[in-house]
C-alpha cells in the first residue's frame, strides 16, 4: 500500500497539484476539528448560542430553520460531537487520500451548513471550499499521493 502511495505520482501525476490542494484542505479540516474538539466538546461550551444567533439569518431555508430549532438546539452536544467527527473524518481522509470521493460529499454537506449558519463574510470562503471539494470528487483526488490509488488499482469503481 505504501509502495502504491508513491507509485501513484508516476502513473497519475497529472493529479499531483490537486492532491497537494487536497492535503492542504485536509490539514485545514483537521485543525478545525481539533479546535472544535477543545472548544466545544472538552470545555463543554454552549454551541446552541451560536446556532440561535444564526437562526435570524435570512439565507437560511425555512425547513432548515425548523430542523435546527427543534432538533439540533435541544441536543446540541450530540450534534457538536457528530460535527467534530465529520470534520475529523474528512480531514484525515483528505490528508491520507483514503475514500476521498465519499468524504468530499460529506465535506460538501459541511460547507453548505457553514454557509447557512455562518456570516456573510465567510460565505465566499465556503463557496471556494465547495468548489474545491467538487473538484476532488470529480477527479478522484485521492488517487495521487493517496491510499485510494491502491484500492483503485484493485477494485476500480466509482468510489475510488
Amino acid at each position: 500500500m505504501l509502495q502504491a502511495y508513491f507509485e501513484s505520482i508516476k502513473y497519475v501525476g497529472h493529479l499531483l497539484p490537486i492532491s497537494l490542494l487536497r492535503i492542504f484542505v485536509g490539514y485545514f479540516y483537521l485543525q478545525q476539528a481539533l479546535a472544535d474538539w477543545k472548544m466545544r466538546i472538552l470545555s463543554n461550551s454552549n454551541v446552541s448560542d451560536l446556532i440561535i444567533d444564526a437562526l435570524s439569518s435570512d439565507k437560511m431555508p425555512y425547513w432548515y430553520r425548523i430542523f435546527l430549532s427543534e432538533h439540533v438546539i435541544p441536543h446540541w452536544n450530540v450534534y457538536a460531537f457528530i460535527l467534530v467527527g465529520l470534520q475529523l473524518a474528512v480531514g484525515l481522509s483528505y490528508l491520507i487520500g483514503y475514500v476521498v470521493r465519499p468524504a468530499s460529499i460529506i465535506g460538501l454537506f459541511l460547507c453548505l451548513n457553514y454557509i447557512a449558519i455562518g456570516s456573510s463574510q465567510q460565505e465566499l470562503f465556503f463557496r471556494m471550499m465547495i468548489a474545491c471539494q467538487v473538484t476532488f470528487m470529480w477527479v478522484g483526488a485521492g488517487r495521487c499521493l493517496g491510499l485510494d490509488y491502491f484500492f483503485y488499482k484493485r477494485y476500480r469503481g466509482i468510489w475510488w
Binding site: 467527527g85 475529523l88 473524518a89 484525515l92 481522509s93 483514503y98 475514500v99 465519499p102 468524504a103 484500492f151 468510489w159
Partner: peptide, 11 residues
C-alpha cells in the same frame, strides 16, 4: 462503500 462505512465507524 463498505470501506467508507468502516472508516467512518472507526473514526
Amino acid at each position: 462503500m463498505r470501506q467508507f462505512i468502516l472508516y467512518m465507524t472507526g473514526i
